[in-house]
């Protein structure tokens, strides 16, 4: 564990708490893409098939939290606050993402086993899981401030993982190409968002696309 990775994981936790806070406080999931949340649930379930493999208490607790919270968010969006979800705003075709990621995972993986291919699939899928949310944002052209804090925390988590990998490469000679390439793409997807968040939200303005 290093500073970057711990901070990244804490940002990831924070992002989920901010999302839960947004839904509970406003009693609405408007502005949140169900499709992105669905993809995250798929990501966590397919990645943590090794849940019973012991690495550390930290590792196990975090995995349980990510699986449980992602499914809980689906429950909130699909059942508890269903009336506040507007599917007509959430029109990104995730079938293509799922298909492309599965295909890539079948071709580019470390070992061709069931568990390993699904792990690789989850890495690729996480990289693009935010696209339905960003697409929704670009369609509506604006977002509630708390929703932008959620997205910022989520993007910061990915950015910090890049620093963690650089750190681990030099201190441990840790190499993981699949995770690096996917992580770099994932972080790059946030660059436009980061720019507007910095220009607008951090200066006290409403998040609006130019």
């Amino acid at each position: 564990m290093n500073f970057f990775r711990l901070t990244a994981d804490l940002m990831h936790l924070l992002s989920i708490f901010v999302l839960l806070l947004k839904i509970q406080k406003t009693r609405s999931c408007s502005g949140i893409s169900f499709k992105t949340q669905l993809l995250y649930a798929v990501v966590f379930v397919t990645r943590y098939l090794d849940l019973l493999k012991w690495i550390s208490l930290y590792n196990t607790l975090m995995k349980i939290f990510f699986i449980a919270s992602s499914i809980y968010i689906l429950y909130l969006m699909k059942i508890k606050f269903r009336a506040t979800y507007d599917p007509s705003q959430d029109t990104f075709r995730i079938e293509f993402l799922l298909g492309a990621c599965l295909l890539l995972a079948l071709v580019f993986n470390y070992t061709f086993t069931f568990i390993e291919v699904l792990w690789t699939f989850s890495i690729y899928l996480e990289a693009v899981a935010i696209l339905p949310q960003l697409f929704m944002l670009s369609r509506t052209g604006e977002a509630e401030t708390i929703t932008t804090h959620y997205l910022f925390a989520l993007g910061a988590y990915r950015g910090l993982y890049l620093l963690n990998w650089i750190w681990r490469f030099y201190t441990e000679h840790h190499i993981d190409w699949i995770v690096w390439v996917a992580g770099a793409i994932q972080t790059a997807l946030y660059s436009d968002f980061f720019y507007i968040y910095y220009k607008k939200v951090l200066h006290g303005q409403k998040f609006e696309l130019p």
Binding site: H12, I55, S56, Y110, T111, W119, N164, I175, D176, W177
Partner: peptide, 10 residues
């Protein structure tokens, strides 16, 4: 060896 990558990250 890629198989030796320890999946300790989340």
């Amino acid at each position: 060896n890629a198989n030796k990558i320890i999946k300790d990250e989340l």
